[in-house]
């Protein structure tokens, strides 16, 4: 079993700092930059198609410390969205036509106003997605989550790197697999992911290593058969997400001396069709401190939205944000490699 280490912040390593991460990525020589790859595909400058999804990263606290986490989330993190920022986000959710609220973290359910965000977003007619690590559902005081999800029709997007324990525990910590299976059974019990129910349970798998995810549709068919056969578990869709070279995954690559090899693999697999559908084109990401980003990955690298656009939630202006030019870097090759990768899985 590989050792799951504390957060980079707790270890006070160099790569706990976003500028150090950006410098490490910028120092990797690639045949062409991401901007050049987009230019060749006729997609530069990259512009949004709209803002369909407001993704709220409500905080970096998490009960797990997964080895690949791009947030560097963990139990020792204290950054949580303030009341002012939550209030402003709710104002926007209630007053704009943005259709989807995507709540992430850390473990978003640990935020004291998480439930209120769900309830008010649903009341405003929004589709609500919760990015759930599953084990949170087994903590004392959080057993109510499965019923709460069901009562409010929340789409649960749950992380599970593999349908067998070894790979899952290797990435997410010892014992995580067993607890995740228990949590999935609870979700099935209240109607999530089962035939005839409209309660949606989607699973997310990240490769446990430095390889790209395989074909999402083929993996989904295999996962459905295996999870049903082994544990009687059902779910709706499997999303494959490429590991982005940020925070703890970047730390792993740097420690192993494999950053160049990994980035080259991503760049070589650049797929123009995936590039056209990247999530930053229809998503706006809000950080715990109210700053705005093109995506959660840019948020962790502290690569803010264009200086010509409003840069905090307090200055939110949908029209100006929809006209912004999306901020890019070498890490963006992670979303355009092979079948592509987004918070909703493969793109092309």
């Amino acid at each position: 079993m590989s050792r799951v280490l504390p957060t980079l912040k707790k270890r006070a390593t160099l790569l706990a700092s976003a500028p150090a991460q950006r410098a490490a990525l910028a120092g990797v020589p690639l045949e062409r930059s991401f901007e050049e790859a987009l230019e060749d595909a006729g997609l530069f400058p990259l512009k949004p198609t709209g803002i369909d999804i407001l993704q709220l990263n409500v905080g970096r606290k998490c009960n797990q410390t997964c080895r690949h986490c791009h947030v560097d989330a963990g139990p020792d993190r204290t950054e949580m969205m303030s009341d002012d920022v939550v209030d402003r986000c709710l104002d926007i959710i209630e007053s704009t036509p943005i259709g989807t609220v995507d709540i992430t973290g850390g473990a978003p359910e640990l935020h004291k106003r998480w439930g209120e965000i769900v309830i008010r977003s649903k009341a405003a007619g929004k589709h609500v997605m919760d990015r759930c690590n599953l084990t949170i559902m087994l903590l004392p005081n959080y057993h109510y989550l499965s019923d709460f999800f069901a009562e409010h029709g929340v789409e649960v997007v749950a992380s599970l790197p593999h349908y067998r324990s070894r790979q899952t525990d290797s990435q997410r910590g010892e014992g995580v697999f067993e607890e995740s299976i228990e949590a999935l059974k609870r979700l099935n019990e209240v109607g999530y992911g089962v035939e005839g129910s409209d309660l949606v349970l989607n699973l997310v798998t990240n490769p446990v290593g430095t390889f790209l995810p395989g074909n999402q549709a083929a993996l989904e068919r295999d996962w459905k058969r295996q999870l049903k056969r082994l544990y009687g578990i059902e779910f709706n869709h499997l999303y494959t997400i490429t590991n982005l070279p940020i925070s703890r995954f970047l730390d792993f690559l740097e420690t192993e001396g494999r950053t160049h090899e990994y980035l080259e693999q991503l760049a070589t697999a650049f797929n123009p069709a995936a590039a056209a559908g990247v999530m930053c084109r229809n998503t706006l990401s809000v950080a715990w401190d109210g700053k705005l980003y093109d995506c959660d990955f840019n948020q962790m690298l502290e690569l803010p939205v264009s200086p010509r656009a409003p840069r905090t939630i307090f200055e939110f202006d949908q029209r100006r944000l929809e006209e912004r030019q999306i901020a890019l870097g070498p890490h963006c090759f992670g979303c355009t490699a092979g079948g592509g990768s987004s918070c909703g899985g493969a793109i092309a």
């Binding site: 593999h162 067998r164 070894r166 390889f211 993996l219 295999d222």
Partner: peptide, 8 residues
């Protein structure tokens, strides 16, 4: 690995 097999 890419196609979902594990080391076991």
């Amino acid at each position: 690995l890419k196609n979902g097999a594990d080391p076991e």
